[in-house]
């Protein structure tokens, strides 16, 4: 049976980790805060994947990678890195410094040639296409790039299918309206949107408790549920959430009986 995935997303900027609410960033703490509140040698074994996004406008990739290294030392799960990738060199730097996959967003609209170059070098399966969107007053769904700052002149559905046709490996759908609210995922938009998507779909934006994750992972065409809610899952929040999902018969990998190595 195909298994679903629980994903934790961290937002990094200026040597700190952030909580994002409707794409407004609130600083929570530095790497010491993170290590104290999220013990990655145990958290690592309760998530299927870790995504770390560099959300600073002024990018310091080295500083970002230092933080990634600190986390990945104890985390034996796949790690996807992204944020501000603007050249093949940026992508190469991330792949050679701990990225199993990369997450791209703005270049999907601004530089499709680069997307294609990354995919030919690293393969579709290494590229997650992140799409941020808002529902506007006219109830229409608008995709955004540049950290939610610039609207894309496409309807969300058309934009998503255009991106899928670029041969990306997965889609990461993030609702700006739900982002960081803890009110649950935006199923109104997503359910219709993804019925005929044939690549893996990661749902993001809004999960605030294990029930939200359960709702997300119970939907047929959703392959992974992500949370970036840095405050709601501190301590043993993620291990508890995973145990709950397993008890609710969500098809997730089960490592509960595995002995330490």
């Amino acid at each position: 049976m195909h298994k679903k995935r629980l994903i934790f997303t961290l937002l990094f900027k200026d040597n700190s980790f952030y909580l994002s609410r409707n794409f407004r960033l609130q600083k929570i703490g530095n790497i010491n805060w993170l290590s104290k509140n999220y013990n990655f040698s145990t958290i690592g074994s309760s998530i299927d994947e870790l995504i770390i996004l560099n959300v600073g406008v002024e990018q310091d990739l080295e500083e970002f990678i230092d933080a990634v290294n600190e986390i990945s030392k104890h985390c034996f799960a796949p790690i996807a890195l992204g944020g501000g990738i603007r050249s093949l060199k940026d992508a190469e730097y991330l792949f050679s410094n701990g990225a199993d996959k990369i997450v791209i967003n703005s270049i999907l609209e601004t530089d499709q040639r680069l997307v294609s170059d990354i995919i030919s070098k690293y393969g579709s399966q290494s590229v997650i296409a992140s799409i941020d969107y808002k529902v506007n007053d006219k109830k229409s769904e608008v995709p955004f790039i540049f950290n939610g700052k610039r609207a894309v002149d496409y309807l969300l559905k058309d934009y998503m299918h255009k991106i899928i046709s670029m041969n990306v490996g997965e889609i990461y759908l993030n609702s700006i309206d739900r982002d960081g609210t803890g009110n649950g995922y935006d199923f109104d938009t997503v359910e219709n949107l993804i019925t005929d998507v044939e690549i893996p779909v990661i749902l993001a934006g809004g999960a605030g408790n294990p029930n939200h994750l359960l709702e997300g992972l119970s939907k047929a065409n959703i392959d992974a549920a992500s949370t970036a809610n840095l405050l709601n899952f501190v301590g043993d929040g993620l291990p508890k959430a995973r145990n709950y999902l397993l008890e609710m018969d969500v098809p997730l990998a089960d490592w509960r009986d595995d002995a330490d190595v």
Binding site: M1, H2, K3, K4, R5, D48, A77, P78, D100, K101, S124, Q125, S126, G169, E170, E198, I199, P200, D223, A224, L252, A253, D254, W255
Partner: peptide
């Protein structure tokens, strides 16, 4: 496709790399 995520493998024999493993084990694929 791609096949992404943890999935179950069934070792044919529990020797070599699979020494000490259970009948069904989850590993990460992409």
């Amino acid at each position: 496709i791609p096949h992404v995520g943890f999935d179950t493998i069934r070792p044919i024999s529990k020797t070599g790399i699979f020494a000490g493993f259970k009948d069904q084990v989850d590993f990460y694929f992409t």
